[in-house]
Design a protein around this nucleic acid. Structure first.
Lengths: 346, 346
DNA sequence: CGCGATTGGGAAAAGGTTTTCTCAGAGGAA
DNA sequence: TTCCTCTGAGAAAACCTTTTCCCAATCGCG
């Protein structure tokens, strides 16, 4: 009965030299044995493997990186520490990379140029294989210059440099999803309440909203632009329902907070959601979407998938494979809960 | 007029050897010149410095780390990718470390033991100087074993191993802050609506709530335990205000979502906040606290400061300075908005 | 002018791994 | 037995920087 060789957690890491000595071979042979390279008897290889195992040998990644000029490390730059947008993106990136042995440096640069330079320099010094930039807005640059860095750069959910590779959500497509869903449910007077004109996504979504309604031959109500807040949702309901003429039977909102405000305001007016008015939000911020009464149908930007895609693309770039520059729009999906109603026959 | 030597962004990084060659000295001298060590004429030093500057030399951190046995890198383990608790913690950690040239590996281990091991191994292979563990609950372990790793470990806002160093928020202190504030404002019948009994913080805060009221000679109403949701806030108001006897004139809530539910429910009953009933939340989740009507007074756990503290402590540990094991509770602070009312004379 | 001390700078090892080259010995063929 | 070809394994260079030791030249002083 062989005693179980528990690989003692090394206080001081075991080196290849020690493994080689213990196995009675040279470091060269030990290296080749563990990497499955070189030529040697099966017994020798196995003996070295066992010795390494027993000693708890793990190759020093710094030494490997130095030699290979590849650190299995990427930098993730963001200016959205607290936000809920870049987080799923980060998570997706990390997910995509961990299995390939790649670790991620998280660098929050706020909106501070000095901090940005500091982080970029630190990343470059540490010889990251590549950099992913992400942010809280799709139409704003990070406060850093990422051109000519000598390592591949990918932009994910932030404004890219011209000629770069970027992944963003397809906001127009997401808006279509929502409006078309309302159409399918038989809604005829669909309003759009959204954020400030300073956001590019506001225009992209509003245009898609108009396009769908025009295609379907439904009346287009001019989108109401305001802030991204619940309060604006309240106010917008007042504007929509106090004016004379036909009232909307559906409201497509630019984010979930606005939608929350809209739903609350409708209820306060005695209007039923979804029977009288259907509501769809944007972002699918779970904690908000599930707290509205009734739970909110919302457009999800698939940010984790976006991050995953960005991570994999960066890796292929690092591997030397070519990739077309340009902006890739990834599709959104509609998460149907109860605020939009059921099909007429349903 | 000297032409401005623009440090050309190196496609392939410049090495010390190249700097030395360009300056006509040995690498040893170049190294010493740039690090302010050794003895040489001021001119030599300056010439080397200029050459390095001109060539855009930046020392290869991997080589330095290999030699110094210090990577200026720490790992941050979390199981709270989407959550709002560990984010401020992370931000604080990163803030504290970036100025010391230390970068942070962000590792999301979800609740997956395999993933945890994967990340820990990767971090160890990359020779992190230390590890910080953080999570979404103060009373749950991460799914990883961090004992005997050979590098210092600090716990921040997660359940520590015995004998480890941990930073957590002082939940009892935070609760005292809230309840004492109500007392100062002259509220006499203060209720407590909080989360499920399975959370340690629920008990800590509830006990502090009882303690303060007892100290002040005010009636203690048994805390209402439920879920962390708005819906529970609604329900709790029903329980509190439908029963006979005196009604509360203040409600201290276990988190901001509950508080939001409470405020909405009170308004629906025609009760004024803060005139009839004061409300204080917990967590100071800005986006919720500022969306309630009126804006919510809430206890802030100072998580960024907690993270900063954890980061600095880890660094001192890495530097070889000793530190007492144990759990350090960091104070909360009360962020006063409008839901709690003003002093009687105010 | 002779001697010791100082000065300016270089050679080399170290850190841990990978990879190319080299080489000793064994085996086979003639 | 001699020559040639494999086979198994080791030596050494390379990656890039830091640091210790060392050496040649200069300086000061008697």
């Amino acid at each position: 009965m062989s005693s179980d060789a528990s690989p003692a957690p090394a206080k001081t890491p075991v080196t290849l030299r020690e493994v080689a000595a213990a196995a009675g071979v040279s470091v060269a042979t030990a290296s080749k044995a563990l990497n499955g390279l070189g030529r040697m008897t099966a017994e020798t290889r196995e003996r070295i493997r066992e010795t390494a195992q027993r000693l708890g040998f793990r190759p020093n990644s710094l030494a490997q990186s130095l030699l290979r000029r590849r650190s299995f490390t990427v930098g993730l730059l963001t200016n959205d520490t607290y936000g809920r947008f870049s987080l799923p993106v980060m998570s997706g990136i990390s997910d995509a990379l961990v299995d390939k042995g790649v670790s991620v440096f998280l660098c929050n640069v706020e909106d501070d140029q000095r901090l940005g330079q500091l982080h970029v320099d630190a990343m470059l010094d540490k010889r990251v294989d590549g950099i992913i930039a992400t942010g809280k807005r799709i139409d704003r640059h990070l406060p850093v210059d990422l051109s000519n860095l000598g390592v591949p750069v990918i932009y994910a959910f932030t404004q890219p440099d011209p000629g770069a590779i970027a992944f963003v959500s397809d906001d127009a497509g997401g808006a279509r999803l929502a409006v078309e869903h309302f159409c399918r449910l038989g809604r005829r007077r669909i309003a759009h309440v959204t954020g400030p004109a300073s956001f590019a996504v506001v225009h992209a979504r509003a245009q898609a909203y108009r396009d769908v309604l025009t295609e379907k031959g439904l009346p287009v109500m001019e989108p109401l632009l305001g802030s991204w807040s619940e309060a604006w949702g309240h106010e917008a309901v007042k504007k929509l329902f106090d004016r004379k003429g036909e009232k909307p039977d559906a409201v497509f909102c630019g984010n979930d907070q606005i939608a929350r405000g809209v739903i609350d305001a409708l209820r306060e007016r005695g209007l039923d959601v979804p029977d009288d008015v259907g509501v769809i939000g944007f972002d699918n911020w779970q904690i908000v979407a599930e707290a509205t009464r009734p739970p909110l149908t919302s457009v999800d930007m698939n940010l984790a998938a976006l991050g995953r895609e960005a991570g994999l693309t960066l890796l292929s770039l690092v591997g030397g494979e070519p990739a077309e520059p340009g902006i890739r729009k990834l599709p959104c999906r509609l998460v149907v809960r109860q605020s939009c109603g059921r099909p007429p026959g349903g």
